[in-house]
Write a protein that binds this DNA or RNA. Structure first.
Lengths: 205, 205
DNA sequence: CTGGTGGTTCGACCAGTAGTCTAGACGATG
DNA sequence: CATCGTCTAGACTACTGGTCGAACCACCAG
């Protein structure tokens, strides 16, 4: 966990560290990023870095969390549609997905960070961080799944964990495909529509 | 590329190196594996290791390739069904998938290696290896996809690369779910059937 | 038997890594 | 002025993957 002292640091220093770390992690991923380079770029000493962060993993998860929160705040809240039919459920989801992806294509650095996260999170060194993130997202996922089942949009004959795992896997595959192809903004809605259609077909009752 | 001299090495030495490497990579993944530990466990010197392999990545991809080839040989060949209807296409696929997974659950070390591969392959250090592997699998994937489209089992209105990416993503998610849950052998057919059904629903025309 | 020669092995060494630790600078407070 | 907590600097440790030159050894020609 990031040490609370970090909040007391002068904001410009905080920004310098965060910017340096984001740069490094976005371009190199977790493993190939060098903490020494971050320290140098941020213009601080090793002692200071370890005074504010527990280590490389801590810095990485902190930066990732901050950036994701920024993205989510920018995209706006998502409310699970508790009523309506299956079509309404899926169009709500597609709408949110579209908003997310448009925001993401606008900030390629964050996209790279997230892609790197998806690649590195399964590695032993980051399992704790991965679990932590999953715990944070889990209620949202379960809730959305339950809502989908309630309106008859999602099958109920398989374990929820399996359904979620598969859908998340599909989402990751789609994201990397989208982000590496970098399609036109105008094409995005059509593409996203097709992608949500695929998810819908996969989990249809 | 593994140096050709390796083939001339005494078989027991080859085995010692391969076994040590498989052990290390399966338990630690690529990044957290230590080449020094492999060298020690294999009972050779650093110079010899680098005499036979170009480096860590080379050893890793070699071990992975050997083990995957062993698995595929054990599972037997897969022939794309060129005729028949969609049901036949999917049942052939489900059958092959089932054979693969039963073989995989029988050798957890190999399963761990493959899981580690999926996690580490997107990392910058392994992109070449990843591309190499993909190039090897690509014709097979494209062929199978085309066969599916020919019998009307797979939609044709989306880029082949996107369809393949999504299906591979689903497969990875399912594999890790299956392998971490380690379900009964008896339950496997039912589960695999459901999983293939999900894939079918996702890519249905 | 001598002296190469080429394939093979060894381990010291290099530049880099993440992380630890101690000495001290700075400022507030008694 | 003295002391105490906050903070910084950077030397240091134990490790990493990778390089390199020396030595070893079976072979063969003279």
């Amino acid at each position: 966990m990031v040490r609370p002292r970090f909040a007391n640091l002068a904001p410009e220093q905080q920004q310098a560290i965060l910017r340096a770390a984001l740069d490094e992690f976005a371009t190199h991923g977790f493993h190939d990023a060098s903490l020494n380079r971050v320290i140098e770029a941020a213009g601080i000493s090793k002692g200071s870095m370890y005074y504010y962060f527990e280590g490389k993993e801590d810095l990485y998860t902190y930066v990732a969390r901050i950036e994701v929160e920024r993205l989510l705040a920018e995209v706006g809240p998502f409310s699970v549609p508790s009523q309506g039919d299956a079509d309404a459920f899926w169009s709500t989801l597609a709408d949110y997905y579209l908003r997310l992806m448009t925001a993401l294509t606008a900030s390629p650095q964050l996209a790279a960070l997230i892609r790197g996260w998806a690649a590195a999170s399964k590695t032993p060194a980051l399992q704790e961080a991965q679990q932590q993130l999953e715990q944070g997202m889990w209620p949202w996922l379960v809730q959305t799944l339950a809502a989908g089942q309630r309106v008859g949009a999602v099958r109920s004959d398989l374990p929820a964990a399996l359904l979620i795992a598969v859908v998340v896997g599909m989402g990751q595959a789609m994201d990397t495909w989208l982000v590496t192809r970098a399609p036109d903004i105008d094409d995005l809605p059509r593409l996203i529509g097709a992608l949500v259609e695929m998810i819908r077909g996969a989990v249809r009752p």
